[in-house]
């Protein structure tokens, strides 16, 4: 069953493009990645889901119901973590969370405290005294306290330190095991790859590609950098290598294909350092535009 059905969803802000003809489905229990650079239309799509803005064309259905018409009803079962969290200042964290919980038709008290413990959130502090990262933690607790069936995450990890990111990802995985569907928007390919089953790539308001994460990874280029005093870069001129460049004391290139093959080639050389990393999102997009 599809939890989210998006059909030719289009949003223009006056003449400015938000998104155009976006179509995809997210199935129940999926962790769906939504990836694209800033300004691609990720937040616009999520705000359309939440009924904060109205579509110019097309429609989006969540739990089989139209996002605008049944907004309040479907939001009972949605947890939302925006990229930037803004809450009422001059309120204590606990009061704000209780306020948020009061809108849901279930008792969220136990889960609220449980989540606050996991995220090491001090409930007694005032919202306006919190750092950016701590506000984000409030956002996480607030978005999850009612155990929603669908969790919308908009660049959730910005402002969280690595340890907290780890806790957060574990939390999301648990929620997913419990049965929640996750819609995960991000511009960091690494975290999407780590978490998601499927991913949609959005650029300039349109979906470029929707793909299984494993396929994407296999298809994907790795960024390889080799440092060595004497190196014959011609040795790396094999199929799957692009953008081979000689750098100060080494070479760098992108490689797509059997990783064992390239490892063999590297091991034949006398190297002082090797890094193999995921290409940045921009580099991936460059590949899509080739």
């Amino acid at each position: 069953m599809s939890i989210i059905e998006v059909n030719k969803l289009t949003k223009f802000y006056g003449k400015a493009r938000g998104i155009e003809n976006v179509t995809f489905n997210v199935d129940e229990g999926e962790i769906f990645g939504f990836i694209g650079p800033n300004g691609a239309g990720k937040s616009t799509t999520i705000r359309l889901f939440l009924g904060l803005i109205h579509p110019t064309g097309g429609d989006a259905k969540i739990f089989g119901k139209d996002c605008i018409q049944y907004g309040p009803e479907i939001r009972q079962e949605i947890g939302y973590l925006p990229s930037e969290v803004f809450y009422y200042d001059r309120m204590k964290v606990l009061d704000l969370l209780k306020y948020s919980a009061s809108f849901y038709k279930k008792d969220c008290t136990a889960r609220l405290h449980e989540l606050a413990d996991i995220m090491e959130l001090d409930l007694k502090r005032r919202i306006d005294d919190l750092s950016y990262g701590n506000r984000k933690k409030v956002g996480i607790v607030q978005g999850l306290l009612h155990q929603p069936k669908l969790i919308l995450l908009d660049e959730p990890t910005s402002g969280l330190d690595p340890l907290m990111q780890q806790k957060f990802f574990n939390l999301i995985r648990q929620e997913n095991k419990r049965g929640a569907t996750i819609f995960f928007s991000s511009h960091i390919l690494g975290e999407v790859q780590k978490m998601c089953n499927r991913v949609a790539i959005i650029k300039d308001g349109s979906i470029i590609k929707i793909q299984d994460i494993k396929t994407l990874q296999n298809e994907n280029y790795k960024k390889i950098k080799i440092t060595a005093s004497e190196l014959d870069e011609k040795r790396f001129g094999v199929t799957g290598v692009i953008k081979l460049e000689r750098e100060n004391g080494g070479v760098s290139f992108f490689y797509r294909g059997d990783i064992n093959l390239i490892m063999k080639l590297i091991s034949e050389q006398e190297v002082s350092d090797v890094t193999i990393e995921e290409p940045s999102l921009e580099e991936i997009f460059m590949h899509y535009y080739e």
Partner: peptide, 14 residues
């Protein structure tokens, strides 16, 4: 103004 609307109206209220 305070950008809290993204919070208050993503709650299940009309």
């Amino acid at each position: 103004r305070d950008k809290t609307v993204e919070f208050s109206l993503s709650l299940p209220v009309t």
